[in-house]
Design a protein around this nucleic acid. Structure first.
Lengths: 337, 337
DNA sequence: TTGTAAGCGTTATCAT
DNA sequence: ATGATAACGCTTACAA
């Protein structure tokens, strides 16, 4: 409990030099005698000195930090994005600090988390939330380089890097239509719940319609809020009759659908085909085998960092919008009619 | 691109008062005329003022921030922990900043991430890494309240909150023995790879032995580094002969085992029973059905935060070690012999 | 090569 | 109720 966290002055005293010399020596020795550098470094590590980033940021007007906001770190989707950020940021000489919502999905909470990042004076902002409206991001984006990752955006003042939801939903729907399904249920979530998920299901429904497939739209929010919601939705599908495939807004939802089916003794794809969306780790495994559409999160993460950093470094001035292509994950839950 | 981030002086000017008044008004109005408070708040929100946390931290000697280090945010295990931290910290009036390793699993990287947090002058540290040796944590723990979450620790100077690995491994092994298995393969990872995983598999092997079960120890690191490692391990188990169950160090590994079995036309639990460990979301679902041992991550996360915050607030002085009980997840991959 | 001093945006102490 | 003013720990001209 040696409460005294060493400051640059302690190091200076220990090395017998002034604090300016310490600062320069530790920064990268520009105009400091090699012997002195050695002495300073020794003293610093002896004392366990770690420069106060707050003080440094104030005087240097630079923090070399980008802030990442993720809506909910507990889902693998955001988790993968986070590690991708970290990896690329380190390569480009920046650190990443992350803030997340408090698990609750209130917009106010999310805005508060963003403010935490801004208060830290991060030099760039990466926002990942399917729910936070762009209007809440804009005030920050006008002041500091910002990129929205993982969802499409059209605004002029904020960059975005995302997987083409429309293209993915369309391609997946084509696949279903190709396999001869003539009546398909599309499960949707409220637009306010997830912009991305509703975008892709919109595309699915549209494309199925264009292909002459009969679409049964099942709004999940109409089926209550409890965990048994999907039972009710699946029952509904069965009651409608003639449906041979269900398209879910995400792998996560698809798992729920499969579980609900299982409780009813229905098997996929024998009784009913099922598709998901996202194609990330746990669900896209061979064992799970959900037919899905994979978003290359590592690419999205990497490009997001590049975008903010380029803006910070002044390489880029205008906001850019980058759509990444996804790929089909064949899986085993979708079969010909 | 109004590059000018407003400072307290801008707000003061806009409100026609001194910066001291702004500081007090925004902090919580102690000795400030109600009318003035109103004027200041208005000016602040007009300007989009967000106080510089770095400057505040310097002068106030408090950051009201705890730092969380997680080894790899992309796994649901750590992700759930993160949201639990966030939730509880918010309740106790602290913010959480998170740093993660760069996806690579180098100890140096992890130490660097810890230093990032310390540089930010977080008031407390929560470390979650199955790999980082405690010696690397100690130097920090001596200076700032620290808790290691998710793995047991015995050191006097650092708290820990963890799920009882020994108890869990033992209970799971008992379950397997109870079901009449007489020859069981236990898959293990290197102690240096994961302290927690090796702790639980040690307990499994020990208890199986105590119950008179024949234990086949399969060291996964002996089977190479490639993704096909588990194929080789499973082949080995089959070659040994007589094995009726495999106990994996985690659900993640168990999934791999199930996939490898699947490639060989082996089914669980008909041909071979399989158990995992962790019991968290994607794998412990009804659909996946892995027999496992659940760690209550929300409780661990919440208690971890309480521990650091209590240390910060001076409620607690000594390091504490808290073991949380887990629960059996029945699943469907373990059957009587 | 090294040291001195100013300033970064806050909060806290002390006057007014 | 309000306003100067001194820290806080660091970087960075500028001086020596």
């Amino acid at each position: 409990m040696s409460h005294a966290v060493p400051t640059i002055l302690d190091v200076a005293a220990a090395a017998g030099v002034s604090k300016s010399v310490v600062s320069r020596a530790l920064a990268g020795a520009y105009g400091v005698a090699p012997a002195t550098v050695e002495r300073v470094k020794q003293a610093a590590s002896d004392l366990g000195y770690v420069a106060n980033a707050n003080a440094r940021g104030m005087s240097a007007h630079r923090t070399h930090t980008v802030g990442a906001f993720v809506r909910d770190a507990s889902t693998p989707f955001y988790g993968h994005l986070l590690t991708a950020f970290q990896l690329r940021a380190a390569e480009r000489g920046y650190r990443v600090v992350t803030a997340t919502g408090a698990g609750s999905f209130s917009i106010a909470e999310e805005r508060r988390a963003l403010e935490t990042l801004v208060a830290l004076r991060v030099e760039g902002l990466i926002v990942c939330s399917g729910a936070l409206p762009v209007e809440d991001v804009l005030p920050f984006a006008q002041r500091i380089p910002t990129v929205v990752a993982g969802r499409p955006e059209r605004d002029e003042s904020v960059s975005s890097v995302y997987c083409d939801e429309h293209g993915g939903g369309t391609a997946l729907a084509d696949r279903v239509a190709d396999l001869g399904h003539e009546r398909v249920a599309v499960f949707t979530v409220a637009r306010s719940g997830s912009l991305t998920q509703s975008a892709r299901t919109d595309a699915m429904a549209r494309q199925l319609g264009a292909r002459g497939v009969d679409v049964v739209l099942v709004r999940l929010e109409d089926h209550g809020d409890d965990p048994r919601r999907l039972d009710s939705a699946v029952d509904h599908v069965v009651a409608v009759g003639g449906v041979t495939a269900i398209m879910a807004p995400s792998d996560h939802w698809a798992v729920g659908v499969l579980e609900a089916m299982r409780r009813r003794g229905l098997r996929a794809p024998e009784d009913l085909s099922v598709t998901g969306y996202d194609g990330i780790m746990p669900f896209a495994t061979e064992l799970f085998g959900i037919t899905s559409w994979r978003q290359p999160l590592d690419v999205i993460g990497s490009l997001s960092v590049d975008d903010v950093v380029d803006q910070i470094d002044g390489v880029t001035s205008r906001a850019t919008h980058t759509a990444i292509d996804g790929t089909l994950v064949p899986g085993r839950t979708l079969a010909p009619r």
